[in-house]
């Protein structure tokens, strides 16, 4: 959902929260993005996506800086934060491979790389989830990690130089 403020796609920052708030910890990406939106920061646009890859490629089209927050299930401890500079490095597919119904984040990034459709800067934060069952609400350790990602994004990307 685009905010009403008209932003320059090149100079503004796009934050994409990915997931499904009805699948337990899978909602952490979206819920964290909402917290960023609530701060009404200038030059920041936040959107929510299911994680379907082709829509992501459209969402980051012509953007300068994009930050993605998603839940992962890679076998590490719940609440572990995995971060990637996707424009600079390949995303290990084990992190996001089944992340959507069909064609997921890691594949979208790699397909966009092949087709030269990546944004200039793309940072991905993956938060290790614990419970992906149907139902709403985050596990405590995942909620905590979501807050930490929020702090990191604010500090590393959204603080004026």
């Amino acid at each position: 959902m685009a905010q009403s403020e008209i932003l320059n796609p090149q100079s503004s920052i796009l934050i994409i929260g990915i997931g499904n708030v009805f699948r337990g910890d899978d909602g952490v990406g979206i819920l964290t993005a909402r917290k960023i939106r609530e701060r009404k920061l200038s030059g920041i646009q936040t959107i929510e996506e299911s994680g379907e890859g082709t829509s992501l490629i459209d969402a980051w089209k012509d953007r300068g800086t994009v930050i993605i927050i998603d839940a992962v299930s890679s076998g590490t401890k719940p609440g572990t934060i995995h971060s990637f500079d996707a424009a600079a490095q390949q995303i290990p597919t084990r992190f996001f491979h089944y992340s959507t119904h069909a064609f997921s984040l890691a594949e979208a990034i790699e397909l966009a790389r092949v087709l030269n459709r990546l944004p200039e800067r793309l940072f991905v934060y993956g938060i290790e989830g614990k419970n992906f069952d149907a139902g709403s609400g985050l596990s405590p350790e995942v909620k905590k990690a979501g807050n930490e990602v929020l702090t990191r994004i604010l500090r590393e990307h959204l603080t004026p130089a």
Partner: peptide, 25 residues
């Protein structure tokens, strides 16, 4: 979200025992 159970496609078994997905598993 994703699950990353190891995949063993060798040998005499074809096993697809866990497909963790947001919309279905």
């Amino acid at each position: 979200m994703s699950k990353t159970t190891s995949v063993n496609l060798r040998g005499n078994s074809i096993k697809v025992d866990f497909l963790a997905r947001v919309e279905g598993e």
